[in-house]
Design a protein around this nucleic acid. Structure first.
Length: 267
DNA sequence: AAAACCGCCTGTCGGC
DNA sequence: TGCCGACAGGCGGTTT
């Protein structure tokens, strides 16, 4: 896909290309702007920051995308694949087409004219350190944990300190570390934070190796399914016996999200 | 100021 | 069989 020229762009769902905070202010004009600005551009590189995708054009123009729950990019070099009911954007390329599909309309693809405008937008101001980055040290975590009075799962789910953990991995990591998800971050001691840090590294590394979790049809870019779901210890298993102590796994709601943990093993 | 809560979305599934 | 409510969850915006 990189090196390809964009012949034309068609936005089918205008809210897909709105800026942060402008989702409600529907405007067809903005979609037209998006289409016009990208016409003739050439894809040069694709990167990732937390859960965001960053597409860079040869001219310096940028696209920032978040897939949220159900978004997907499909590149079809043959040009034979047809759009589906949930196709929100089509990029006509010099060779084939790129689709942005999204069933639930949470995802977006935002346009920025250059790096400076992206920076000044503050779009990434709440995206913290990558969980597998060597900069995410136990010492850094301890320092961040100390200055907050929120539950440890809430912190892991928010992206401000650690970027990229969602509901599945927050639950799995806390189980592995033996930490109760409602524990306040400022109550965790050095040893617990060390264990949490190690669990984050171990579980994410393993999950990536297995291609992720692929619950409910989520797939890899290749169309294959990840197999980490087989390794889940607690996610989606409330009512079942704890794999460690055999006591019943509990289900609670934290921040509106289902949380499964073992009352006995997670202190 | 910080933390908790709400709303956006549609497909799927269980219960009646 | 079909309807209908509950559920799935990232995270910005709003309320407490």
């Amino acid at each position: 896909m990189c090196g390809q020229n964009i012949q034309s762009v068609k936005v089918f769902l205008p809210q897909t290309v709105y800026g942060k905070g402008n989702i409600r202010k529907a405007s067809i004009k903005k979609a037209k702007e998006f289409e016009d600005e990208l016409k003739g551009e050439i894809f040069s590189e694709i990167n990732r920051k937390g859960k965001n995708l960053l597409f860079k054009m040869k001219s310096g123009k940028l696209l920032v995308s978040h897939l949220k729950m159900t978004g997907q990019f499909i590149y079809d070099p043959t040009g034979k694949i047809e759009p589906i009911k949930h196709t929100r954007i089509i990029f006509e390329l010099s060779k084939g087409r790129l689709f942005f599909n999204d069933i639930r309309r949470f995802g977006y693809v935002m346009y920025f004219p250059d790096k400076k405008s992206l920076e000044s937008s503050g779009h990434f101001k709440d995206v913290g350190i990558e969980p597998l980055d060597s900069e995410l040290t136990p010492e850094f975590m301890e320092q961040e944990f100390k200055k907050r009075k929120i539950g440890v799962k809430t912190l892991l789910m928010g992206q401000k300190v650690v970027a990229g953990l969602g509901n599945i991995y927050a639950d799995e990591v806390l189980f592995a570390a033996g930490i109760n998800p409602v524990r306040r971050t400022d109550s965790l001691n050095k040893k617990e934070i060390q264990k949490l840090h190690d669990s984050i590294r171990r579980i994410l590394t393993e999950a990536i190796g297995l291609g992720g979790s692929s619950i409910r049809n989520y797939k890899l870019a290749t169309g294959e399914e990840g197999s980490f779901a087989k390794m889940h210890q607690v996610y989606g298993k409330h009512g079942e016996p704890c794999p460690r102590c055999k006591k019943k796994l509990e289900k609670i709601i934290i921040g509106g999200r289902t949380t499964v943990y073992c009352k006995n093993c997670q202190k």
